[in-house]
Design a binder for these strands. Sequence first.
DNA 1: GGTATTTATTTTAGGGCCTAAAGTAAATCA
DNA 2: TGATTTACTTTAGGCCCTAAAATAAATACC
Lengths: 408, 408
Amino acid sequence: MALPSIDTGRHENTLAVIRSLRDHGPVARIDLGALNGISSATVTSITAELLQQGLIAERPPELPRPTGRGRPKTLIQLAPGAACVICVKLSINEIQLVVGDFAGQITHSEHHIVHTLTMSAANLVTLLEEKISAICGRQLEGFQRLAGICLAVQGVVSSQSGTITWSPALSFRNAPISAQLAERFHCTVLLENDANCIASLLASQPEYAHATNLVVIMLGYGIGMSVLINGVPFVGANGSAAEFGHSKYLPNGALCACGRRGCIEAYASDYALYREATQHLALPAGDSAHPSEQQMQALTQLALTGNPEASRIYAEAGQALGYGIANVLALFNPDLVIITGSGVRGFEAMQTSMHAAIDDALVTELIGATRIESCAWDRDMTCMGAIAMTLDATDAQTLLDSQTVREA
Amino acid sequence: MALPSIDTGRHENTLAVIRSLRDHGPVARIDLGALNGISSATVTSITAELLQQGLIAERPPELPRPTGRGRPKTLIQLAPGAACVICVKLSINEIQLVVGDFAGQITHSEHHIVHTLTMSAANLVTLLEEKISAICGRQLEGFQRLAGICLAVQGVVSSQSGTITWSPALSFRNAPISAQLAERFHCTVLLENDANCIASLLASQPEYAHATNLVVIMLGYGIGMSVLINGVPFVGANGSAAEFGHSKYLPNGALCACGRRGCIEAYASDYALYREATQHLALPAGDSAHPSEQQMQALTQLALTGNPEASRIYAEAGQALGYGIANVLALFNPDLVIITGSGVRGFEAMQTSMHAAIDDALVTELIGATRIESCAWDRDMTCMGAIAMTLDATDAQTLLDSQTVREA
DNA sequence: GGTATTTATTTTAGGGCCTAAAGTAAATCA
DNA sequence: TGATTTACTTTAGGCCCTAAAATAAATACC
């Protein structure tokens, strides 16, 4: 009699199975059971359904058969073509579009140089529709459906309402974006902060998997942060949590791009480092307010090779960073702090003073067992993380849709 | 065939019913269904079970019968005597013990003056066992069982391991406490930070109920904080999260009780205010490192009546507090910040400079819609919150135990 | 080569939980 | 007194899960 109302138990188990497959690659039914605490009878039933829906496939047995007695395992894997997601990464004057398959692999990537700072919100939406449309036409053959789109943007976003509250890449504010794209492409549209994408990606890597409380700090032109609590990004009331760059180092200190004084960003970001450096050093010409990668590398090189003025600047940045991290430790008490972003190029020159500042600021009890590590920067991390988040978020939807189709 | 393994669905629904009854007082079955999204048939089944276990009771119909047609509602309420919990609040040189019934009402309260600072961990446990034992003998008649004990202590505690990592009330560290009490009294023993108890209590009040992201700052001899995310205290990796008092205002600033410099606490706590004041003002004699309530009230009075030196001291404290809160806003982006604790007595004298500091530190986008309010201090709030938390935590256990009994 | 053993997966039998609908209870209204 | 309204309980049936039995597909051993 009961309606086919979505039983949460079954639904959750189905999602758990898909997640296991995405995280671990091909897995046998019996292991799916053990991994998720369900009986193998239930796994049989769930996988039968997924198989019929085309979301998973049995992998043909490998030729060099695995050693051991007994009936060999039948490995199951996600069907890559079952669905795809598109990630759009929006940075200052550049957008990157990436396609990921149902298994989370990247199947296409493209970059475009555009003047984001001079665009209107309407222009931006039009541009995105155009680029995504082009991808739909040329790159999505072989995929059953487009499950979702993710916009990964620097700055403050409200994921719930799908609005970009503020971004350094854009000159307009409070722009609702998701809804229009969702309507145009008939799929879930996620809006995420770029640091959250990177943090999610890092958290999924086995070496960091133990950290239930992970902080990722991104150094670059600005300074961003993401806090993952039990694997989910902490976004606060309006999505503006974890604004580490604008937490304070020194009341009435150096001028920040935000207009206030004494922010960590006003000491340790690229523009702050370069601004300070131009006052004391002869450096390659260029826009000193928006230093290029070359300009920053030149400056970093000076610091790393012992130029006293450059070293002093990086040491001071390290100190500001250290005091800022001390506050993060006192307030979040994370297992692990990972420092990454393009700015890690200069991390070696900041490290000593950073640790000195932390030790100076906090008693050892509050530093606790928190590990502080740096992580080499890779610009593709944002999109990889965004794809993983989007697949995670759209699985539920995907299943419901398929169910609807089946019933129809 | 299936074992009577605890089905999470039923268990969760049962807990939801109990929680509804605790939060809303007497409720009819049909409303319990609506409140928790379950059918009234299921409510009948769940309440029948609870009725049989003696955890709830039908309330006799009220004499001035409620207006309206149709069969009147049969209100159900928690049976107060079904279980009780004991809360022990541990402060500097004082312990308070409170008994709460199954409905969350306080039925007994007592205070004891003891020299906590000179005690060993073993002494403390012995003392607690003694006092709790006495209560069990004299105050728990009419209760079916002691469901749990909660220790609410100032400082850093590890709830999981049941150890007091550090407390300003104690001279020893890393003392496991919960386990011994649990063994002695055969019940769940919770260990909680006092600020978390207060925050939980405040969060349950209707006026603050909307805040899914609540920060409570406690001013007093020291400065504590609690962050509630979706109603649950955020404790971090080792329980030392939310150490607002030791987040930084000024690198190399005033000396803090922790031994480091520039902590918010070194400016805005009672001892900091009084220390600064004794250098410039004639004040009542007494231990200036541990100012009494009288001493603090005298100082506050001076500030509030316009004494320029006292006003300056409170204004500076307000500024430190404001910069500290600015960091909290940037990092947690809460809906609401509530300032309470005995130190709110001087809040009026700090308020102006506090808000000025916040405005000076942050762009309006990051202050967002966060409300910052003060809340009158009541020393019993800690225990009331602790009782609520303990009942919440022990309900699950209570049900399982009863089940075990039924089966035996 | 043939049987025993081992391990994986599927089928079967049965219990728990939930819901909709039907049935019952207890009021007010007329 | 009976119709109506609202609350609660009982009934019938479906979903989902699990343990155990059955089946499948290998290897090990003689």
